[in-house]
């Protein structure tokens, strides 16, 4: 029982990280109509951007986090406006290919600058709190608490602000958004700021939980896609739930299967959903 609860804690931590990525991916998918394959590498970029601030100014990672987020959002917007924007008129699948190229470029730039070894924000081992026989680390509380705060903030943004509502409108029907007079490019820029920023937070959290590595984000891309599909593409709230489910299932699988195969579990779950209910497990959007 205790083991199960411990795995639940790990699953919620991992699920939080996956959710943050999946929610951005789902927003981008809904508005730009292509699966953004460089999303995992935006995680990595965010983690390394924060790493630079940590090393350069010798500050704790949480202080560096906003800078990592801002820089990653900026890079995401720059990539969109220089590359993706030029390809919007053609078929979405060309954007998909371009995003694979961007993924490899981002990863390789990180490798070029920081090498392919592992790095950490803070050396040393964190002593976990012991609570009713469960081990909980400070970082775990930060990751889960931070995710909850961000999800609430995102919810308020999407429901209450003009830009947030316009993002939902574009996700519903981008042609209608255009004839309504919505400034489509401005909304797309906002989408990248939010998607890129959330990806950076996810990457920083992932690096706090594990360590920095040039393919850390790419390795998480499959679970993130699985979460977005589970939640129903283009549905940010579904993506959050999908992320938590994927995180939990991946951790629950570890007593039965080598932990190396965690992504395979996410994949299996995704395939299952695709077979049984391709619109996602929640009330799916009509496609």
């Amino acid at each position: 029982m205790i083991d199960f609860l411990q795995l639940t804690i790990y699953g919620i931590v991992l699920g939080s990280i996956i959710s943050l990525g999946a929610v951005g991916l789902s927003l981008i998918y809904g508005i730009l109509r292509f699966p953004h394959f460089a999303h995992g590498d935006l995680f990595t970029l965010g983690a390394y951007m924060a790493f630079v601030v940590v090393v350069f100014f010798n500050v704790p990672v949480l202080v560096a986090l906003p800078f990592g987020v801002a820089l990653t959002a900026l890079v995401a917007v720059a990539i969109d406006q220089t590359v993706y924007r030029r390809l919007r008129k053609v078929k979405p699948v060309i954007l998909l290919i371009a995003s694979v190229g961007i993924a490899l470029i981002l990863r390789s730039v990180i490798q070029l600058v920081w090498g392919s070894g592992n790095r950490v924000y803070e050396a040393g081992i964190q002593m976990p709190h012991l609570w009713m026989g469960l081990r909980i680390q400070n970082d775990h509380l930060i990751i889960v608490g931070g995710t909850i705060l961000l999800v609430i903030a995102l919810h308020l943004f999407l429901q209450k602000t003009k830009v947030g509502k316009a993002m939902r409108a574009m996700s519903d029907n981008s042609d209608l958004a255009q004839v309504t007079g919505i400034d489509v490019n401005r909304i797309i820029i906002w989408t990248w700021i939010i998607g890129g920023g959330l990806a950076a937070v996810a990457g920083i959290f992932l690096a706090m939980d594990t360590r920095l590595h040039p393919v850390m984000g790419w390795r998480l891309l499959l679970p993130v896609f699985a979460a977005a599909i589970l939640g129903g593409i283009g549905r940010p709230y579904g993506a959050i739930a999908g992320g938590i489910i994927i995180g939990l299932v991946q951790e629950y699988s570890t007593p039965f299967l080598s932990p190396a195969y965690k992504p395979a579990i996410a994949f299996a779950l995704m395939i299952l959903v695709l077979i049984v209910r391709p619109t996602g497990i929640f009330v799916g959007r009509k496609v």
Partner: peptide, 8 residues
């Protein structure tokens, strides 16, 4: 798109 995701 799902094929692309499944192939990764």
């Amino acid at each position: 798109d799902y094929l692309a995701i499944a192939t990764i």
